[in-house]
């Protein structure tokens, strides 16, 4: 029943359409930006290369290298002149600027973009779903038919969760299927390890998307207003990182929301941790590793706090 209520909401339909369209746009952008070079592209690059090779300083530099290859570390090259030409002269691919499709890179590139879009839209979906009931006053009417508040809260949360799971799974599966097709068509298949890593991050992204919706729903059930929830989220986004940094100083990165999301999604993440390098004389790596478990626990604690607060408030407070 709550799924029907959710489905009938126009704002929800718009957000669901966004969940389909925006990833499709991102995929199309990826396909276009990494399209193979056409003959015209190669011709244009060749013209630029020829123009560059005609510059006298290049010829001068190559001759200098041929005379003293040891200055360039090429003294052992079988053909010194050719080696100097390759090392110092411009190459064709310098003028072919467009990156080519790399499947492994997309996990933290466009793939992350798709997850971000889905998280944001499903969070809004959960928010607007609950906010509408409060804004229209229909929550009290619903309670006159189902007075068990916990049951009503859970039914609505389940509708948001289920929608988030289905949307997340379908859209991410479709997006990566699209990337696979693109890679196949261009004969640039990713490695088995890359696909395994992508599979893992997708499996973690689907519950992240769904639980973001539940989080938005829970907060709105607490604040009883879409605007208030969005305002708080905006404030947290803008001021949250600053506040964490101000309170925790050098060790703050570990507690930043984006770092923890990345740790959860990508099975651990390296983050900047200047606290590790206290002795300026000793060389050290100022990064630490945040594990999937640590990131996931952080996110789970936030969600549980929002849910507990929301349920407690809904059960205790008078309903207008």
């Amino acid at each position: 029943m709550e799924l029907t209520r959710l489905r009938w909401r126009r704002a929800v339909v718009v957000l669901l359409a966004g969940c389909l369209l925006l990833p499709a746009v991102l995929w199309a952008g990826l396909a276009w930006n990494t399209r193979p070079f056409s003959e015209a592209d190669v011709r244009e690059a060749q013209a630029q290369l020829d123009q560059e090779l005609a510059q006298p300083y290049i010829d001068r530099e190559i001759r200098r290298c041929t005379r003293n290859p040891q200055d360039y570390g090429l003294q052992d090259a079988p053909d010194v002149e050719e080696a100097c030409g390759v090392a110092l002269g411009p190459q064709l691919d310098w003028f072919l600027y467009r990156p080519q499709l790399d499947v492994a890179e997309q996990e933290r590139g466009t793939g992350l973009g798709v997850v971000t879009v889905l998280v944001a839209l499903v969070l809004l979906l959960g928010t607007t779903f609950a906010g509408h009931d409060w804004n229209s006053g229909s929550m009290s009417n619903q309670l006159l038919f189902e007075p068990r508040r916990l049951r009503l809260w859970v039914a609505k949360a389940a509708a948001v969760l289920l929608t988030g799971l289905v949307v997340g799974a379908l859209v991410l599966a479709a997006f990566w299927a699209g990337v696979w097709l693109l890679a196949e068509s261009r004969d640039v298949q990713g490695t088995a390890a890359a696909w395994a890593s992508i599979r893992g991050s997708v499996l973690r992204a689907v519950p992240l998307v769904a639980l973001a919706g539940v989080g938005g729903y829970a907060l709105t059930m607490f604040f009883r207003s879409t605007v208030a929830t969005l305002g708080v989220m905006f404030a947290v986004t803008v001021a949250g990182n600053l506040l964490v940094a101000a309170l925790l100083g050098d060790g703050s990165s570990r507690w930043l929301l984006p770092v923890n999301v990345a740790a959860y999604l990508f099975d651990g993440v390296e983050y900047y941790d200047p606290g590790r390098c206290t002795n300026p004389v000793v060389e050290c790596d100022p990064t630490s590793m945040l594990s999937l478990t640590a990131g996931g626990t952080y996110l789970l604690v936030l969600l549980v706090a929002a849910v507990v607060l929301s349920v407690w408030s809904f059960r205790r407070r008078d309903v207008p």
Partner: peptide, 16 residues
Amino acid sequence: PKFSPMFTGRQNLALL
């Protein structure tokens, strides 16, 4: 009366 303004009268009653 408190119902969802964007739903029709029938939809509001059907949900209840």
